[in-house]
Design a protein around this nucleic acid. Structure first.
Length: 843
RNA sequence: GCCCCUGUAGCUCAAGUGGAUAGAGCGCCGUGCCUUCUAAGCCGGGGGUUGCUGGUUCGAGUCCAGCCGGGGGCACCA
């Protein structure tokens, strides 16, 4: 018998060639393709499935995280195909963005060039991993044929009033020399890209009106199959608060100041009023009062502070009086006004009513400035029927919990505060002094970037006509080549004079182009739509193509995009649906977020020198081992630590599987047509057959719930069983077990599985339907019944699966060792779990 | 501070709605087999008070409560 050596390099190359030459993983659009007639025969039976991994940012080479993402996605894609579905599994590149531009600044190489190199490297490696991609749909978002439609979408949003320009205090990264979206600034006020402290600047910028969609973005989370924690993160980010808007009037200046509060039940406890330093009226209010200079100084100081300094809740509260008052609408009291930096301009109305007895921040401020503190909520009575507790001691304030209204107004005193809340709002509404209101933390999406390598914003500015959209037939507005990429606080595009100077589409007069580019998250907010119809030159997509594939059935990616990309893509989908371009509301029906791959417990990074390169691993042990290992190392939704020993273990497993299959095929005299199940009634064949069906059942279930690690472990168990029984089981039983093992492993290790299956059967495993477990073989007709006495195992006996509970009790009572423990004692209870055990409880 | 996840063998993970003697892989051990030797391969073996304390139950890794440890999200959001 010939020696068999597992040679992944040879095997993987061979099967990759087959797939490439035969375009195995390409799918046509039925609605638009001439293949349609051919396909209709199956169409009724087949279901379409869109499996998508988040598109990679092509920078350098793929890293181990990419290997994990695409190993997960490919397993799903293969599984769906083998279940008989037509699967769309495309690939593209998110190729605009800062890394390529920063590289250009350093080296002078045009981003287009470095991106192309990187894309080549990604494409080569994806091929070498054997990922089943429909390469006919590939594109990069920096190609004019793509960004032309990004610009078209921008103009659609502009026409609908969802893209607008406004001056606002925005986040500015001094290192990258550009503004950022709120989502791109972390909790410490640092740029998520470069980590430097973000500054605040007052600039006129383009925004997308995502806040219009806050409520729907929140509510529609209920209808999608996403991980709970991602939904929670989006809910937190949207930050919906219910409360009321209440109007406080300043009689002195004759202006109404609305405030947002979640606690209108505490209105009677308001003792002062605070405005944010950025509030446009602050300086005006102080003008002419003795406070004018102090307010001026305070505001100037506040505006120069960083987000980090401002955001620190621990530091002492500061502020200065404005020298003015407002009227509390519920009781007519005059409340002194202050400016203080603990009030944020971006949230609510930029002004608050302060209730020091029931809000920690207001309490701290009142303590610091000696302001009155009036308690209006008392903690609940200790028991029903007793009167409310006396107001808590001053030391116990602020009290932020629920309770009973006190000290407010005869209409409300003694009332449950939650009930009073509703009644007070209703009263305000009747009086025209306020109304119920909902506030969101979410702000509009700032999409302007003062950088070169991005999608140009298709807008021109005309001295006569103002802001004018570039006409659709002039799209794309192409990104011009420039000499100097260095950012200088304005877009490098501004230096391309010839490009900037243009004519107004409306009046034909001189005009200037918008020189900012779009945030790259705009590019990735619709790419999944383009895959459905990637070569369309007449439109961003053909609606028929979208009907065929969208929404994405299974989306896969890192949890780091839980808010950014995943929220923006949902917003785009809803906005485009409202504009009549889509007929669905959510882009990603199901989401799977995979965990990070770490080395020695910490994130891989070049500076730590602990980077594991997928290319090197694949070179050494093959793609199948690399892919299998990364799925086997742990539950794929959790972080996993890379271990080279673990890789070796998986490599040996694949080798054992392949060798045993090759050897079995040899013994059987070469490949036989197909995989036939042996008939076995007892002995090794039956044991192996049962294990095989157990594995089918286990792997199928595990694949449905993304438990790839346990699915692979099940195939390992099957192989171990086959290996143990290699000399006692029949050749046919061995062929069936090993062929099934290869078939089950195919989604994770496609090359070695295809090869082993081919040797055993002469057939292509990916063309075979997914195996089905036979119920009859999963269960036995007799089993070992566990006999317990007082919950302890005392004996076990053979029982028939269809024995009645009565018969099982009888069997148990008759078991010798059970009798020894039961005789002479009183039988109190009998617990029967058919198929498992009988438990006799005695005293 | 608030919310969520998590704790099982040396390591990474399993144990559908509570049910048996808690299982895999890696690592470890073997004066076990095969090899001239090593490696590879094969075979065998040890290893667990399921973080702790109580509770519910005939029965708890699984359910409940409280502590302890690890991770994540949000946070001056009115």
């Amino acid at each position: 018998m010939a020696e068999h050596r597992y040679e992944p390099r040879e095997i993987e190359q061979r099967w990759q060639n087959v797939w490439a030459q035969e375009h195995t993983w390409e799918v046509a659009n039925e609605g638009t393709d001439q293949d349609r007639a051919e396909l209709t025969g199956h169409a009724a039976l087949e279901q379409n499935s869109y499996v998508l991994e988040m598109l990679p940012y092509p920078s350098g080479e793929p890293h181990i995280g990419h290997l994990k993402t695409y190993s997960v996605g490919d397993a799903i894609a293969h599984f769906h195909r083998r279940l008989g579905r037509r699967v769309l599994h495309p690939m593209g590149y998110d190729s605009f963005g800062l890394p390529a531009e920063n590289h250009a600044i350093k080296t002078g190489v045009h981003p287009r060039v470095s991106i192309a190199e990187s894309i080549d490297s990604f494409r080569r490696q994806f091929h070498s991993w054997g990922i089943s991609i429909d390469w006919s749909r590939e594109f990069a978002t920096s190609e004019p044929s793509y960004y032309r439609w990004t610009q078209w979408i921008f103009l659609e949003l502009f026409r609908a009033g969802l893209a607008y320009r406004k001056e606002a205090a925005v986040k500015w990264c001094p290192n990258d020399q550009t503004v950022l979206a709120n989502e791109q600034v972390d909790a410490e006020g640092r740029c998520e890209r470069c980590g430097c402290l973000v500054e605040v600047r007052q600039l006129e910028q383009w925004f997308l009106r995502i806040t219009d969609y806050a409520e729907r973005l929140l509510n529609d989370l209920d209808g999608i199959d996403w991980p709970q924690h991602v939904k929670t993160m989006q809910r937190n980010w949207i930050g919906r608060s219910e409360g009321a808007e209440v109007i406080f009037r300043s009689e002195e200046v004759g202006i109404d100041y609305p405030v947002f509060t979640t606690r209108p039940d505490t209105l009677f406890g308001a003792t002062f009023f605070v405005m944010a330093p950025e509030h446009p009226d602050v300086l005006r209010l102080a003008r002419g009062t003795p406070q004018e200079q102090a307010v001026h100084d305070y505001v100037n100081h506040a505006l120069t502070e960083t987000n980090e300094e401002r955001g620190n809740a621990e530091r002492p509260k500061t502020g200065v009086p404005l020298g003015r008052t407002v009227v509390n609408p519920v009781n007519g009291e005059q409340l002194p006004m202050f400016v203080a930096d603990y009030v944020l301009m971006e949230y609510g109305t930029g002004a608050i009513m302060a209730v020091p007895a029931h809000d920690e921040r207001d309490h701290a401020f009142a303590k610091a400035y000696g302001l009155p503190i009036r308690q209006v909520i008392a903690p609940r009575p200790a028991t029903d029927g007793e009167p409310a507790q006396l107001p808590a001691d001053a030391e116990e304030l602020p009290y932020t919990g629920d309770g009973v209204i006190v000290n407010s107004h005869p209409d409300f005193d003694g009332m449950d505060n939650r009930r009073a809340l509703g009644e007070i709002v209703a009263w305000l509404d009747r009086e025209g002094k306020g109304h119920a209101s909902v506030n969101y933390r979410l702000r509009d999406w700032l999409v302007s970037r003062q950088r070169y390598w991005g999608c140009p914003i298709p807008i021109v500015y005309c001295e006569r006509c103002g802001v004018a959209p570039v006409p659709e037939e002039e799209l794309p507005v192409r990104l011009p080549d420039i000499e100097d990429y260095t950012p200088k606080g304005r877009s490098p595009l501004a230096a391309a004079e010839e490009w900037v100077n243009t004519t107004c589409p409306t009046c034909g007069g001189p005009a200037r182009r918008e020189t900012d580019t779009m945030d790259t998250f705009v590019d990735s907010s619709w790419y999944f739509l383009r895959y459905c119809d990637p070569h369309d030159e007449q439109a961003a997509w053909d609606p028929a193509a979208l009907r065929e594939w969208m929404p994405v059935d299974q989306y896969i990616g890192g949890v780091e995009h839980a808010i950014l990309h995943l929220m923006y893509a949902r917003f785009f989908t809803k906005a485009l649906a409202d504009l009549g371009h889509l007929d669905f509301q959510e882009p990603f029906q199901a989401l799977f977020t995979q965990g990070m791959v770490t080395k020695d417990g910490s994130k891989m990074s070049k500076s730590k020198g602990n980077v594991v390169s997928p290319a090197a691993i694949v070179e050494r042990v093959g793609a199948d081992t690399a892919r299998c290992y990364i799925l086997f190392v742990g539950p794929p939704d959790q972080d996993a630590d890379w271990s080279d020993e673990g890789v070796e273990g998986v490599h040996r497993f694949l080798g054992r599987l392949w060798r045993l299959a090759a050897e079995t095929a040899d013994r059987a005299g070469g490949p036989a047509a197909g995989l036939t199940q042996p008939t076995a009634s007892d002995g090794a064949d039956l044991a192996l057959l049962r294990k095989t069906h157990w594995a089918i059942d286990k792997v199928s279930g595990d694949l449905r719930r993304f438990a790839f690690n346990t699915a692979i472990a099940a195939v390992m168990e099957l192989l171990n069983e086959a290996s143990r029984l290699r000399d006692s089981a029949s050749l046919q039983a061995m062929r069936f077990a090993l062929g099934t093992a290869a078939s089950l492993l195919f989604p994770f290790a496609p090359h070695v599985s295809a090869d082993a299956y081919d040797r055993l059967t002469g057939e292509r495993v990916w063309e075979q339907p997914w195996p089905e477990a036979e119920e009859a073989l999963l269960e036995r007709d007799v089993y070992e019944l566990v006999c317990q006495v007082n919950g302890k195992v005392r004996d076990r006996v053979q029982a028939s699966v269809d024995a009645s509970p009565e018969a099982l009790k009888e069997l148990c009572r008759a078991a010798p060792n059970v009798r020894a423990h039961v005789d002479g004692r009183e039988l109190v209870k009998e617990v029967v779990v058919p198929g498992k055990l009988v438990n006799l409880v005695v005293r």
